[in-house]
Amino acid sequence: MVFDEEEEQQKGEKDLDQIQESDCCGNGCTNCILDNKPQPSKRILLAGKRNILLTYTKFRLIEKATHQTDDQVLLLHFADAGDDVAEDTVLDIPPGHHVMLRMGSLLRPYSPYWSDFRRREFRILVKLQPGGPMSRHLAAVQPNDLLEFRGPIGNYTNDPSLTKCIFIVAQGVAIAPTMPLVRDVLENEEDMSRIWHLVCARDLEHVFFREKLLEFGHSWNYRCCLYLPHQQCDSPGCQEAGHCVAECQELRRSLRYKEVAKVARLDAIELASHMNPSIPGQRTLIVAGDSTFQKAIQEVAATALAIDPAHVYLL
């Protein structure tokens, strides 16, 4: 079959024409589907296939588990329903993009931390919110249940030919969408960008994907620092302070080889400490977290990292 790129783009544009005001979840997302309509990616165009996410599609929940350190955090694995999906379709969720879940009149965006292009599967990390309408639904879903998703939605793209200094700041479960961003750079031998992954979590137990972060640390162009303001052990000094002190030996023993952690919040001084003017490359900032966190980091980074606002991305 001869692939016609123009014909494929016309098909994609037809799907995009179906986006309506009602497709917005109304939560004030940074990357609203009305502002960032899904576009065919380079990978889609090269494959000559259609992205099944361009319209709401049913996916089957094939695995549901709670996180080992927090029973209010769910790991959900989905695969397309399969029976009526054409062979000319794939699942394309570029790094830094999210998908919209629709359950009745409820709409909520979620960012996959893993996806499979040809098998049409993806995984998300969900923090259940007390009293949250969507949280109640997700707490009740079971394997084999069918849920509807649409996307991908986002505006981040990575040019591997451009060397960058990428500062990725993640808050809590919002670390999930940053994982594909890191893999996208580290797995491309032609990408000479460097990554500073600054992870803000309550304590060491709430650092999600910790093993993966340690794996990333084997790469020459990756650095990670954990910020754990509420880390606390049972030692008298730390109990008196209300958190582990800088010289806490119990915390030191809890860290793995080359793992760096600080019992502090990420502020302007800490951000500036990661800035090395001698390292070449375009400065890029990616912030993943709630709107208050995004705004705070964006404000301090403007001076601490001297980043052009055009190179700041909020997930």
Results as ranks from 00 to 15, higher is better:
244 C>M: 08
115 S>Y: 04
17 D>T: 10
282 Q>D: 05
5 E>D: 06
58 K>N: 10
81 A>W: 01
249 Q>L: 14
244 C>R: 11
91 L>F: 03
5 E>Q: 10
24 C>V: 08
233 C>I: 05
296 A>N: 09
150 R>I: 08
300 V>Q: 07
194 R>E: 05
74 L>C: 10
61 L>N: 01
62 I>W: 08
160 P>S: 04
162 L>A: 14
294 Q>V: 11
56 Y>V: 02
77 H>R: 08
168 I>F: 12
28 G>N: 06
252 R>T: 06
78 F>H: 04
223 R>N: 11
203 D>I: 03
265 R>G: 10
105 S>G: 10
111 S>G: 14
71 D>Y: 01
259 E>Y: 06
269 I>A: 15
292 T>M: 09
172 G>C: 04
291 S>G: 07
51 N>F: 07
212 K>P: 00
223 R>A: 12
304 A>S: 15
270 E>S: 14
237 G>R: 12
218 H>S: 07
41 S>G: 09
143 P>A: 08
77 H>I: 00
147 L>F: 13
22 S>F: 03
181 L>T: 09
26 G>W: 00
123 R>V: 00
91 L>I: 05
196 W>C: 13
267 D>N: 15
282 Q>N: 05
207 V>D: 00
256 R>A: 09
315 L>M: 12
239 Q>C: 14
251 L>M: 14
300 V>P: 00
303 T>P: 09
95 P>G: 06
270 E>K: 15
260 V>T: 13
184 D>I: 01
55 T>K: 15
148 E>T: 12
216 F>W: 04
176 A>S: 14
122 F>P: 02
43 R>D: 05
311 H>K: 14
165 C>T: 09
260 V>Q: 13
172 G>S: 08
179 M>C: 13
233 C>K: 05
272 A>N: 08
227 Y>S: 06
196 W>I: 09
94 P>Y: 02
137 H>C: 11
154 G>P: 04
247 E>P: 05
273 S>T: 11
235 S>Q: 14
23 D>A: 03
239 Q>T: 10
144 N>L: 13
72 Q>G: 15
257 Y>L: 13
151 G>P: 06
207 V>C: 01
212 K>G: 00
195 I>G: 00
55 T>Y: 06
155 N>C: 14
199 V>C: 04
310 A>L: 11
298 Q>C: 15
182 V>I: 15
31 N>S: 13
114 W>A: 15
